[in-house]
Design a protein around this nucleic acid. Structure first.
Length: 597
RNA sequence: GGGACUGUAGCUCAGUUGGUUAGAGCGCGCGCCUGUCACGCGCGAGGUCGCGGGUUCGAGUCCCGUCAGUCCCGCCA
C-alpha cells in the first residue's frame, strides 16, 4: 500500500510521487489551505491540500480528524523558505495530497490526545486501559523502538561476534524451593500436580552446558509472584547467558564488550574498558551497599577504632556487641543540612529510622576544628581522638559528620540511604554521567535471622572461590554484579559443576539430601555425566532499557505492563474462570470475596 | 500486611474559613479564515465533584468506610 514511512522523508525525495499510510496527528485548516501531520511509527510529515494545487482532495481533507487512518499519495515538495520547520526531521519538505483514501475513521471521542503537546501528563490508569493508543504516542513508541534496538544489538553482538546460540527453555516447569514465590498452574493431565512458571531459566541453561551448547543466550521471560514496584513486574524479561570453559575473568571481559557495544550503538557513548571493579567488602565498607552509585563521592568511614573504648556507651556498646560505628561525612553540610532535619521528625531522621536506626548522631566541624555536637559525645572525645576523627574522615571546617552505630547491616543500610538522599538533594548526582562497575567477591551465604539458617546470597548454584573451599559458610563466591548508576542491571556467577560441592552447598543452606534429590536430583545426576566448567550472567532487560530511555518505571518500556495491584487494565486480567474449567482440573477455590454493602 | 499521596467536564488542572448557577486551557461540534506547524478568531455542547454513608440549615470542601491508580516499607535467592 505504501512506498515510504512518514518520518523518513527528506529533501532527497523532492519530486518523487510517494504513498504514505498512517494516522492523522493534527489537522490545521486555515480555510483555504489545510495542513495535515501524518504520523506512523517513524515520525510524522506535513501534508498539504488546497483547492488550487490539489483540487481532488481538498474537500475530503476538510473532513479528516485526529487519528483517522489514511492513505495519501502525492508529490514531495520543498517547503517555501519561510515555512521551514527545523524542529522536526521532515521539516524541510511537505507532501501535496493528490489522492486521499480514508482507511478508517474514529467513531468515539478519544480518551486522551494521542498527539503530544509538550510534556502533557495523562493518568497512568487511563494510559494502561487504552494502551494501544498510549503506544501510538511519541514517547512510548520511542521507548519500544529503543527496546527493540537494544535487543537487536544484543543479538548481533552475541551471535555474530561471540558465536552464541539462542535456545528456548520451558515456561511450564517445576516449583523451586528457594527464592521468590512461584506462579503455579494446575495440570489437567496429571491431576493434583502443578506446574510453576520459571523465575529464571537457571537450571535449564546449566543443563544446556552439560549438553555441549557452550554459548547459550535467551531473551527470557521470567515470573515472580511478589509485590510490584516501579522497577518490578510479575513478568519481566532477562537477557540470560551461559558459557562453558570460561573463567570469571573471561566471562566479565566478554560482557564488557557486549555492554560497551550497547552503549555505543544506543547512546553513542564510548565506555572505557575494562570497567572499574570493587569487591563486595569494599562496596559495603565505602558505600554501605552492594550496588553503589559512584557518580558522586561521599564515602563512609569506619571509626570503630576511635570509639571502641569511648565513654559514650551508644558507640562503645555497639562495638562491644559486635557492631560498628561509621560516619557519613558531608562536605559543607553545616550550611546545607539543619539540625531539625536530623532530629526526630526530620526527614533524614525518618530515613534513618526506616533503615532501623534509633537516631542519627552528628558532629559539626567548626572553624579551628572545634566541634559542635551533643554533650555526651563531646565529653567522651579526647583531643587525640578528635584529631584522629578529623584525619580519618578528612573533615574540614563547615563539614557535617553523620553517625551510624550498631549492627553493621543496619548501620550500612542507614548510611547508604542517607548518602543517596543527601547526594540527590545536594545535586551531587550528574544525570549525564554514565557510571558502570562490577562488584565481585560476594559472600556465598547470608544469615537469615528469621529462618535461622544460611541463605544463598546469589543462588545455590554459585561456585565458591577456590581459596575458600575449606569453609563454605564464610566462603566468597565467584559471583559478580554489574552496576549502572547505582542500579544492579545484571548479575552472574561461575557455577558449581561437581556433584559433591553442589551437595555441600545444598546442605549449608539447610536443604536435606532428600529435598535436594527431590527438587534438584536431575541436576545432581547430570553433573555425573561430564559437566563442563561453566558460568553465566543474567541482565534485567527492562531495567536496562528503562535507564537507557531515561524513564523512572519499567512499565514505560514494557508494551503491556501490570498495575501495582498486578492487574492488566486493558484485558482486565486476572479474571474468574468458568466453574467447568476448575472442575476439570479438580481445583476448588476457598476464597470468599468480602461482602459488599 | 503496613505507611504516604492522588481521584472535579473526553484530557490536564483550579476551586478560599463549608454558602447562591462548580471554572480555565486543550479536545469535541458549528461558523470564519490560503503558509500553518501547540495555527488564529467567534459561537456552542459537555459535570452523579470515584462510590457509599455520616455531620450540618447547607458538603466538591469536614468525618467514616470503600474502590481505583501511584510511590515506599515488608517481600523480591
Amino acid at each position: 500500500m505504501r512506498t515510504h514511512y512518514c518520518g523518513t522523508l527528506r529533501t532527497e525525495q523532492i519530486g518523487e510521487t510517494i504513498t504514505l499510510c498512517g494516522w492523522v496527528d493534527r489537522r490545521r485548516d486555515l480555510g483555504g489551505v489545510i495542513f495535515l501531520h501524518l504520523r506512523d511509527r517513524s515520525g510524522s510529515v506535513q501534508v498539504v491540500s488546497d483547492p488550487v494545487r490539489t483540487p481532488d482532495t481538498y474537500h475530503l481533507a476538510e473532513t479528516l480528524r485526529s487519528e483517522y487512518v489514511v492513505k495519501i499519495t502525492g508529490r514531495v515538495y520543498s517547503r517555501p523558505e519561510e515555512s521551514l520547520n527545523d524542529r522536526i526531521p521532515t521539516g524541510a519538505i511537505e507532501v501535496y495530497a493528490e489522492q486521499i483514501e480514508v482507511l478508517n475513521r474514529v467513531h468515539k471521542q478519544l480518551p486522551f490526545q494521542v498527539s503530544q503537546t509538550e510534556n502533557e501528563f495523562v493518568r497512568e490508569d487511563l494510559r494502561l486501559k487504552y494502551r494501544y493508543l498510549d503506544l501510538r504516542r511519541e514517547r512510548m513508541s520511542a521507548n519500544l523502538q529503543l527496546r527493540h534496538q537494544v535487543i537487536k544489538t544484543i543479538r548481533r553482538c552475541l551471535e555474530d561476534r561471540f558465536n552464541f546460540m539462542e535456545i528456548e527453555t520451558p515456561i511450564l516447569t517445576r516449583s523451586t524451593p528457594e527464592g521468590a514465590r512461584d506462579f503455579i498452574l494446575p495440570s489437567r493431565v496429571n491431576l493434583g500436580e502443578w506446574f510453576a512458571l520459571p523465575q529464571s531459566p537457571q537450571l535449564f541453561k546449566q543443563l544446556l552446558m552439560v549438553s555441549g551448547f557452550d554459548r547459550y543466550y535467551q531473551i527470557a521471560r521470567c515470573f515472580r509472584d511478589e509485590d510490584l514496584r516501579a522497577d518490578r513486574q510479575p513478568e519481566f524479561t532477562q537477557l540470560d547467558m551461559e558459557m562453558s570453559f570460561m573463567s570469571q575473568e573471561e566471562i566479565i571481559n566478554l560482557n564488557e564488550e557486549l555492554i560497551a557495544r550497547i552503549f555505543k550503538e544506543i547512546k553513542g557513548i564510548e565506555l572505557a574498558l575494562p570497567l572499574p571493579r570493587m569487591t563486595y567488602a569494599e562496596a559495603m565498607d565505602d558505600y554501605g551497599c552492594d550496588k553503589p552509585d559512584t557518580r558522586f563521592d561521599l564515602k563512609l568511614v569506619n571509626v570503630s577504632e576511635i570509639f571502641k573504648d569511648s565513654q559514650f556507651k551508644v558507640f562503645s556498646g555497639a562495638i562491644a556487641s559486635g557492631g560498628v560505628v561509621k560516619i557519613l561525612p558531608i562536605p559543607g553540610g553545616n550550611q546545607t543540612i539543619s539540625n531539625v532535619r536530623i532530629k526526630p521528625g526530620g526527614n533524614l531522621f525518618k530515613e534513618a529510622a526506616e533503615a532501623g536506626a534509633k537516631g542519627v548522631a552528628y558532629i559539626r566541624v567548626l572553624a579551628d576544628n572545634e566541634i559542635e555536637t551533643i554533650g555526651a559525645i563531646k565529653d567522651s572525645l579526647s583531643e587525640i581522638s578528635k584529631q584522629q576523627l578529623l584525619t580519618l574522615t578528612g573533615a574540614k571546617p563547615g563539614d557535617l559528620l553523620l553517625f551510624g552505630a550498631g549492627d553493621a547491616a543496619m548501620v550500612n543500610k542507614t548510611l547508604d540511604r542517607l548518602r543517596l538522599v543527601i547526594g540527590r538533594e545536594l545535586g551531587l548526582i550528574d544525570d549525564n554521567k554514565v557510571n558502570l562497575l562490577w562488584v565481585t567477591d560476594f559472600p556465598m551465604f547470608e544469615w537469615n535471622a528469621d529462618e535461622k539458617r544460611l541463605e544463598a546470597l546469589h543462588h545455590p548454584f554459585t561456585a565458591p572461590h577456590p581459596d575458600d573451599i575449606n569453609d563454605l559458610t564464610t566462603a566468597r563466591a565467584q559471583a559478580y554484579d554489574i552496576i549502572f548508576n547505582g542500579t544492579e542491571i545484571g548479575g552472574g556467577s561461575v557455577r558449581i559443576h561437581q556433584r559433591e560441592i553442589q551437595e555441600q552447598v545444598f546442605s549449608a543452606i539447610g536443604l536435606s539430601i532428600e529435598e535436594a534429590n527431590d527438587k534438584f536430583g536431575f541436576l545432581l545426576e547430570a553433573f555425573e555425566y561430564g559437566t563442563p566448567p561453566h558460568g553465566g550472567i543474567a541482565y534485567g532487560l527492562d531495567r536496562l532499557v528503562m535507564l537507557l530511555a531515561g524513564e523512572d518505571s519499567i512499565r514505560d518500556v514494557i508494551a503491556f505492563p501490570k498495575t501495582q495491584q498486578a492487574r492488566c487494565l486493558l484485558t482486565n486480567a486476572p479474571a474468574n474462570v468458568d466453574a467447568k474449567q476448575l472442575k476439570e482440573l479438580e481445583v476448588i477455590s476457598t476464597y470468599k470475596p468480602k461482602a459488599v454493602d
